[in-house]
């Protein structure tokens, strides 16, 4: 699983050298942010269902004309797709917070996923809208500390950027 630590060690090993000062500084930076990341991971874990539900509910509110029951425009279609996939992405974001790198999103959520979405003509807009809502909704200190929110939002941005 790719993280700051494994990346530093892998690149040092590939070059047959010890980690450089800048390598160690980046590891140090990652460790310093670890408690904020773990706080965000814990809060997200405790509220995963609510965050996912709020995100897709917000999309429904934003696009109230998604209402032709039983057809492609139906609320149920949008909600069911969003609910499953948003939860998946939030889970990967939680893993990233734990790992301290974007490896889980890169390996399980992004690499190849853009190609699959394009090949099957699957819409990315619902995910992007729901994740954007989750990003804009986060509030400190109500949800988590300011530093934890920075870590969480950075990964939401990363997912939005990679999926769109």
């Amino acid at each position: 699983m790719k993280s700051v630590v494994t990346t530093v060690v892998a690149s040092a090993d590939a070059a047959g050298r010890f980690p450089s000062t800048s390598d160690l500084e980046s590891v140090q930076g990652s460790i310093q942010r670890a408690s904020a990341r773990l706080e965000a991971a814990e809060k997200l874990s405790a509220n995963l269902d609510n965050v996912a539900k709020e995100a897709y509910d917000a999309c429904i509110k934003k696009y109230p004309y998604l209402n032709n029951a039983g057809e492609a425009n139906s609320n149920d279609t949008f909600k069911a797709k969003c609910h499953r996939d948003i939860k998946h992405y939030l889970r990967l974001i939680q893993y990233c917070l734990v790992v301290g790198g974007t490896g889980p999103l890169d390996e399980w959520g992004i690499a190849g996923q853009r190609e699959v979405y394009r090949a099957l003509s699957l819409p990315t807009a619902p995910y992007v809208e729901a994740l954007s809502f989750a990003r804009n909704r986060g509030c400190t200190p109500r949800d988590m500390s300011a530093q934890a929110l920075v870590e969480y939002n950075a990964l939401l941005d990363y997912a939005i950027n990679s999926l769109s």
Binding site: Y63, L66, A72, N73, T77, F78, S121, L122, P123
Partner: peptide, 8 residues
């Protein structure tokens, strides 16, 4: 194209 008209 099942999802093309998602946003109407």
């Amino acid at each position: 194209n099942r999802f093309f008209s998602l946003f109407n």
